[in-house]
Structure formats: C-alpha cells, structure tokens
Design a binder for these strands. Structure first.
Lengths: 230, 230
DNA sequence: CGAACCCTTGATGGCGATCAAACGCCGTGG
DNA sequence: CCACGGCGTTTGATCGCCATCAAGGGTTCG
C-alpha cells in the first residue's frame, strides 16, 4: 500500500489503540488489492479467510436467494467489513461486490484472530467495532419492520444529509436500483417515491438530491430520536 | 443466586473460558432478580448499566415507535442479552420485557468492561457472542427483505422444529400476537397463514404445532442452506 | 449507430394491513 | 357456581401499499 496511507489506516478506530509492533506485524502480512467496478469479491457461503478494509471506492454487501438478490448495506471508505465472519471463522452470510473501482486491504483472518488474542487494546477495538455494526443492523431491521417505503426513503435522505454536514445538494451514493434494494423496495417504486418527496422538502432529480426543507422532510420521516441517532 | 446454578452459568460460552478469579469477582457483584410476567425492565433510550443474563423464563426484545411496537427477538434461557449496549456504554436500542416470570442475572456494565479488558479469554468469548448475535440479526434482516409472510412463518416453524430435536409436536414459544410481530405480520394474518400451512405439512391449532411433513414444509419455506444454518 | 442498461411512467394485480365482529378462554366478582 | 368482562384468536370484508408487467426515453459504451 502507499506509504502515505499507512497513517490513515492506523488511525482507524479498529487499529488506533493497538500495540505498534502487533500492528506492524499485521500490516506486514496484509496486502492491498485493487478491484474494478462490479466485481464480486466475496460470495455467500464462502470461507472468511480475510478481513476486508475498504480504503477507497464503494462496496455493496448483498445476499442472494435463488435468482434474486437484495442489497444489505453500503460500505464506504475507510472501514472494515465482514469482521464477524472473519473473527468467528465462519461462512459469509453476505456477498460483496465493488460498485466503483476500489482498493481493499486484506488481512488474513487467522493473523487477525491471533493479534486479537494477544493484544487487549485491539480486542477492545474489534469488540466496539462489532458492537457498532450490530447496532446498525438493529436499526436497519427496525426501519424495515416499522416504516413503509416512503418513510424509509425520507429517513435515508435525512441520514445522507446529516452525513454530508447538511449540504443542501448532494449525489446519491449509488445507482437508484441499488438504493431501492437497500431500502427494501423496487426501482419503480423508488422512482415514484422520489417524485412524491418533492412535496415534502426534498427534490430528487436523477442522482442529485436537494434538501430544500429539512423540517418538512422530518415531519414525513418521523425519525426516532433513539434509533436514528448514529 | 442458587448455588447449583453457578456451574450452569459458568458453563455458558461467554463465561466458560475466563479466569476463575475474574469470574468470581464478576459473579460476586452480580445479583439475581426475579421479575413477574409482562414487566418491562429495559426501555429504549435508557442507559445500559447492566448486562442481562436470562437464567429462567422468557424475554421479549422489542422497539417502540410512537404508539406501535414491534417484537425484534425472543430471548430464551440461558443466554445474555443487550451485550452490545452494555459493552459500548450506549443507550438501549430495544426495550425488553418478560413474557413469563423470569430470573435474570444482572452484571454491572462497568464491571464487565473492566473484566473484558483484563481477561483475554473473556474478551474473546464476548467477541464471539457478539459476532453470533450479529449474524443472527443479519439472518433476520435477510428473512424480512427476501421472503413473504407465509415463507417466514414456515421457516420459523422449521427452526423451532429443529431446535426441539425434531419433535413432531410442540408448543409455540409465545403468544401468537408476539410471534406475529416477530415475523413482521399482523395477528390476523398469522392466523390465516397458520390455516394455510395445513396444506403444506404443518398443522397449527391454537398454540400447538404438529409437523406432519417436513419435506412439504421445506418446499414452501425454501430455507437457504447458508443463511438458515444456525 | 446500435445495443444494453438504467430510469421513468403508466396500468394492473396481489399480498397483507385494516376494520369489524364473533368465538373461546380465563380471571374476577357477585 | 355462574355471570360478566377482558383479552387473545379466528374469520370475514374491504382497502391500500407496493410488486409486477409493460413500454418509452435517456445515457453510455462498444
């Protein structure tokens, strides 16, 4: 990996507090791989031989059932994914593919487990990371069970809006079909829902979003102060 | 807690491998509490001051949105719950109530965090526990997004059937209204779905279930060999 | 320039929610 | 002991959200 990126990766919550010598050992055996867009690098049911860390690009986690697939989560840089499978040495529950060209750091699972066993600070960080991801999925499940599609879209846009520090205008992070699947709806319905939001403070035209009235959007989305605090 | 139960709790995966002296310290400061049925002991948004371990009884985890609530998970003995919130010292994402009279062991979160920091084996066990729960929620979310209600019910019954070592007849673990909410459907629809299953190898009459043709039920449920392996 | 592919828009249908009512069970109190 | 009321479950009727099917427009890429 590029020399200037080592500090950036080291400063990830997962690696920030660990012992430097253990970190050097892990990074020494890790390797960076560059993937083109639309490449499935992990398949459901496979073995989790590596912890993946997305350095750059965009990754989609999804599940497959027969011929149908559903997006579960978008992974943005810089963050790790499939930590749970890597740590417990089990099969992947989700597949992963790149949405854009991506650079991904691969850390052998076995090495990671060894390091966690030896380094208490790393163990704590991994635990925190996993706990955060757990809580995020609980949020997704809640969202799915409690809200209908329009509300989910509205909440999604509110979240993006917040993530981007309240920028009035921004781009959707992925193709609409992917967003639709992530939100548990069809592309057709997402399109209609986007039009509907024009009357509720959000104008979505193609891939660009304008938040013109956050209050109105919140009135529709009714974000939960506890569940939706990220 | 009763003397004869200490070995049972100690043999939980979470506590089995830790150092005996740390375990004694934790258990020394833990206390057992008895709750009547239908008592909400944890409210969404509250602080996670204790790790809870259900020794005996049945607990429902659920979320509240305005006036509506949704069941997220059933907790059966003996197992811990809300580990993620307790470890990260954050607010509860879910509420918890007893469904039957229950005995619950309460371990101060702060004490737990300290013990995890000192005891690598406990840290590893906690990590595994959390990873397992993470994977279970991923399964729930997949189930929710990919299947419709009848399939979800069928899969639920298959899971119960397996859990009970293939017993031909068994009781539903909770009231149907709770099961319905857990499966993301209304009580009315669950009732109809139960009748429908009579033609697919499962006879549900009131709270009792008979699996008369598992193959037929599986044909309807189409369980995923990866996702549904628990 | 053509062929995918994505997005959009419209028409239709079905799954499941909602509303409504009756039944059975069980506790309480007369 | 029985009457009553409450609650969970069941069954029926209806509604609405959203999926599906279908077709057209726009963009990208070979």
């Amino acid at each position: 990996m590029r020399a200037e990126e080592i500090p950036e990766i080291s400063s990830l919550p997962l690696f920030a507090t660990m012992q430097p010598e253990v970190r050097d050992e892990i990074f020494g055996s890790a390797f960076l791989q560059v993937f083109p867009p639309q490449l499935t690098m992990i398949e459901t049911g496979g073995r989790a031989d590596f912890l993946h860390i997305l350095i750059d690009g965009l990754v989609e986690l999804f599940t497959v059932d027969g011929s149908r697939e559903v997006t579960m989560q978008l992974v943005r840089p810089v963050s790790s994914f499939i930590l749970a499978a890597a740590y417990t040495d089990q099969h992947y529950l989700m597949s992963a593919r790149t949405l854009t060209a991506s650079r991904i750091l691969l850390i052998p699972s076995q090495l990671l487990r060894g390091a966690i066993a030896r380094d208490g600070a790393l163990a704590a960080a991994a635990m925190t990371e996993l706990a955060m991801r757990y809580r995020n999925i609980v949020r997704s499940l809640t969202d799915m069970k409690m809200r209908q599609t329009l509300e989910r879209l509205a909440n999604f846009l509110l979240l993006e809006h917040t993530r981007l520090d309240g920028a009035v205008q921004f781009q959707l992070p992925a193709e609409k079909r992917v967003i639709a699947s992530l939100l548990g709806m069809t592309a057709e319905n997402l399109s209609r829902a986007c039009s509907t939001l024009a009357g509720h403070g959000a104008i979505v035209s193609g891939p660009t979003v304008q938040i013109v009235d956050r209050t109105a959007l919140e009135a529709l989305a009714r974000p939960d102060p506890v569940v939706d605090r990220h």
